[in-house]
Design a protein around this nucleic acid. Structure first.
Lengths: 325, 325
DNA sequence: CTGAAAGCGCTAACAT
DNA sequence: ATGTTAGCGCTTTCAG
């Protein structure tokens, strides 16, 4: 708490009413230029700064938005957040960052918190467990990112999603073209993305007329506690020569296994791309998601919505780009 | 905006005064249990949620803190943010994240924004350009992290800093023990950390009685636009066989150069540690900063301060840990 | 062009 | 144990 100087003070010092001071702030054109000058002088002299809280109270708008993701530690999400933050700042919004760790309860708590704080809107990578969003947030706008919401919510809310199926297809296709004979997959069970990436995986196998077996796929837990043993199991049991990893966390854990067991002949592909892949001791085929772009796009959608631009529900599907190494 | 149901509504439905409702919320013990039950029933029925904005207005506390860092894209900072966020959430605070990109103007704008929004406190990795923080924030508490503030501010504000000098010493020392004959350094010009890391570098050279030359050190720009040419210049001009990189961004850029020029015999050390270093195609000596811990510690300090715990100014210096690869 | 008064939703004296 | 009243700092009718 710094600003104890209020509009009242300014009014007194400038010899005008509080109303006039407020008008100088918000609609200076309708007030006498001389008065404006005087009031502004006083404001500067007293180092006045309007109390945003009080303004929010009156205006029913906080210029605050919430971003709910699973984890900023994941570079995919931190990039996303940066895209959002940059765009938000340009438009006068502040960003509250919330990490769910894929825990639906946390997600709900954060949403409630944002509602309580009268956030103007939410950008949400949902955990995917059915919540009645509309019942909780009322008419607060939400933009769903990364994970597709339920059909009902899809009709109601904007989305910015990645073409997971196609990206995964390309990655696995690339593995096979490079000579892989048996490709296995480890994907995260996260709603929609896991399923979609698996679909791409399957399509690639199918197009290459390769055998598709249930046991060639492992479902990771989100936190990656068991990736290592899952990977080892696939490798040892199935004798696969290529692994498709559903995200960068999984890849990292797989690399640990390969290192520990000194496996040097595995081909790797991963959904998501990180700069350090260029320097890894394996040639990593990756799928580059435009994370920053997803951030900016979602924030622009949200801001447009908040600016009251009449617009129907918008769905943006961005493409991921294959990176061969 | 979701909650249009206010205390007034609850009061009316429960047949009590607004005050009573408020008391049920804040000091239920001093109100008749029967009344509490009735009011709570109504609150549940109407799905009442207190307007945090109005509470903040009255209580002069927003349960919001600002975190000002240079860039969440840097994994050091995203880890820091996660540490802060976890601790903040546990204590009921929300976190507004601000990226300065080492731009002092942005820093000031963010600080002003946080003051305007009546944030309860700030955790700040300052750009290091002298600002009169106290004049801007008044009695709002600040915890300085990562970068040491001016002497004056150091006396006034809490800090959580890393032992940059010692960590850097150890890294360079390790390089030399491993057989490096000429170690060069590229560090970021960021206030205090750059200088301190360079000091450690120099101490290591000195202890090993190695020649110390001005031209063995390159000062990077923050954004790393010129790291590549600086590195190349050091390598070609000085014929060094080891490079000490001041942070993970610099290291990444150096790796690019080494790859492009197919230089395979360079020894590398870097201040900061990232998981992927384990899988890099160079053995990387690194200095592991406890970023998450810095986050939790700084948030705890801030929260304690806000809880009104009488405490003198606290300075916490955490140690970095050498990782040999 | 300017001001008086009411109120956003909540809480804290100060009664009773 | 409960209610009345005032007010946080600002904006917005409605009158001059």
């Amino acid at each position: 708490m710094a600003s104890q100087v209020t509009i009242k003070e300014i009014a007194r010092h400038a010899g005008v009413s509080e109303t006039t001071v407020s008008r100088v702030l918000n609609q200076p054109k309708i007030v006498n230029p001389k008065t404006v000058a005087r009031v502004k002088a006083v404001m500067k002299e007293l180092n006045y700064r309007p109390n945003a809280l009080a303004q929010s109270m009156r205006n029913h708008t906080t210029n605050t938005i919430g971003v709910i993701i699973s984890n900023v530690l994941n570079p995919f999400f931190s990039t996303l957040v940066r895209g959002i933050e940059d765009t938000a700042t340009k438009r006068g919004y502040s960003v509250i960052v919330c990490n769910t760790d894929e825990n639906p309860e946390k997600e709900m708590q954060y949403i409630n918190m944002l509602v309580d704080r009268q956030a103007d809107g939410i950008i949400l990578a949902s955990t995917g467990h059915k919540l009645d969003y509309h019942a909780i947030v009322g008419d607060m706008p939400i933009v769903f990112i990364d994970r597709k919401p339920s059909d009902e919510d899809y009709k109601r809310y904007d989305t910015v999603l990645v073409n997971n199926e196609e990206g995964s297809f390309q990655a696995v296709d690339a593995l096979i073209r490079r000579g892989a004979h048996r490709v296995n997959a480890i994907v995260s069970p996260v709603a929609t993305t896991g399923v979609e990436r698996l679909a791409g995986f399957h399509r690639a196998l199918k197009e290459h007329h390769m055998r598709i077996s249930e046991q060639d796929v492992a479902l990771d837990d989100y936190l990656g506690y068991h990736t290592a043993e899952l990977a080892l199991n696939l490798i040892q049991t199935n004798d696969c020569d290529a692994l498709f990893c559903g995200n960068n966390v999984i890849l990292m854990n797989v690399l640990h296994v390969l290192k520990e067991w000194q496996i040097t002949d595995m081909q790797l592909a991963v959904f998501d791309n990180q700069p350090w892949f260029d320097f890894a001791n394996y040639p990593i085929i990756s799928v580059d998601q435009p994370a920053y772009l997803i951030g900016t796009k979602s924030m622009i959608l949200l801001a447009n919505h908040l600016a009251g631009q009449a617009h129907s529900v918008t769905h943006d599907m961005v493409q991921a780009k294959l990176v061969i190494r």
